[in-house]
């Protein structure tokens, strides 16, 4: 019997693939057979992602990208069309994070995060949908939201607001994509606390922080980048062909409401 979880023969874009969750998704997708276009700002780290893909026998390209530049999105899609042809899967994963009490958050802080997390995701989904519609691809698009896009997280007003926007963006994009022939599916992935640089850079790599990451979720274990990559694989593949518009929560039970 065939395996619907495979990505054999697919072309996948993963933004923010130079570290953490994005790198793990890029590597897992390549391992499952996809040709991966990995993007990010840092060329050295991008090269490391491609190296890891290739050393596991996969195929990947790096494209240096500023996700906040619309011009750069147009260049990326020109690159994809020249290099690989038709995109089947896109994970709009790149994003940023900071923690500050609301009263200490300036409008500049807020707007900076909004630009990276929301404006850039909007551009990414817009260009991907247009490409998939034009190419008549039964595509799957994912945006990286957060549990913080569904419930509040202390001292993270800007982040929570931006991720709530991204969750909703995915639902309306799903509605639009469903009208295409063939339909394009769009889902958000909403991770809980996942042990990556995004957490340790902001909060430090201490036992207290790790305890916070573990104790707050029902499973009392640390979420790993591979857990999100596996959810992305499921949503990217034919195994999830009837799932669209969902906020796919992978949080160890932290947000069970």
């Amino acid at each position: 019997m065939s395996n619907p979880m495979t990505l054999e023969g697919r072309i996948a874009l993963v933004t923010g693939a130079t570290s953490g969750i994005g790198r793990e998704i890029a590597c897992l997708f390549a391992e499952e057979g996809a040709v991966v276009i990995a993007t990010g700002r840092n060329e050295d780290e991008g090269a490391k992602t491609v190296e890891r893909i290739e050393s596991a026998g996969g195929k990947g390209f790096f494209f240096q990208q500023d996700i906040t530049s619309e011009e750069n999105w147009a260049e990326l899609f020109a690159f994809i069309e020249n290099k690989t042809g038709v995109l089947d899967i896109a994970v709009h994963n790149a994003g940023a994070f900071f923690s500050k009490p609301l009263t200490e958050t300036s409008v500049e802080d807020f707007n900076w995060l909004w630009k990276v997390n929301v404006d850039a995701t909007f551009l990414g989904v817009k260009y991907t949908l247009a490409h998939m519609k034009k190419m008549k691809t039964a595509g799957s698009i994912m945006v990286m939201s957060s549990l913080a896009g569904l419930i509040g997280l202390d001292d993270c007003t800007a982040y929570c607001a931006s991720k709530a926007a991204v969750t909703q963006l995915a639902k309306v994009a799903a509605s639009e994509g469903a009208t295409y022939d063939p339909p394009v599916r769009v889902n958000s992935i909403n991770p809980g606390v996942i042990w990556t640089e995004m957490i340790t850079k902001e909060y430090g790599d201490s036992p207290e922080v790790k305890a916070f990451a573990m104790d707050g979720n029902a499973l009392q274990t640390v979420g790993e980048a591979i857990d999100i990559a596996n959810a992305a694989l499921f949503l990217a593949s034919e195994a999830s062909g009837y799932i669209t518009g969902s906020a796919f929560v992978v949080d160890g039970g932290r947000g069970v409401d």
Binding site: P4, M5, K171, V172, A174, S175, A178, G192, A218, L219, T221, G223, E224, D227, N230, A231, L233, F234, E238, A239, S240, Y242, I243, T244, G245, S246, A247, F248, V249, V250, D251, G252, G253, G255, V256
Partner: peptide
């Protein structure tokens, strides 16, 4: 397929979640 995913180690950090397999009905 959703059941196989939830049964497997691929979903080892998931609990308390309901996977909507409904063509987008409940979310849009």
């Amino acid at each position: 397929e959703a059941a196989a995913f939830l049964a497997s180690e691929r979903s080892k950090f998931m609990t308390g979640y309901t996977v909507p397999v409904d063509g987008g009905w409940s979310d849009i």
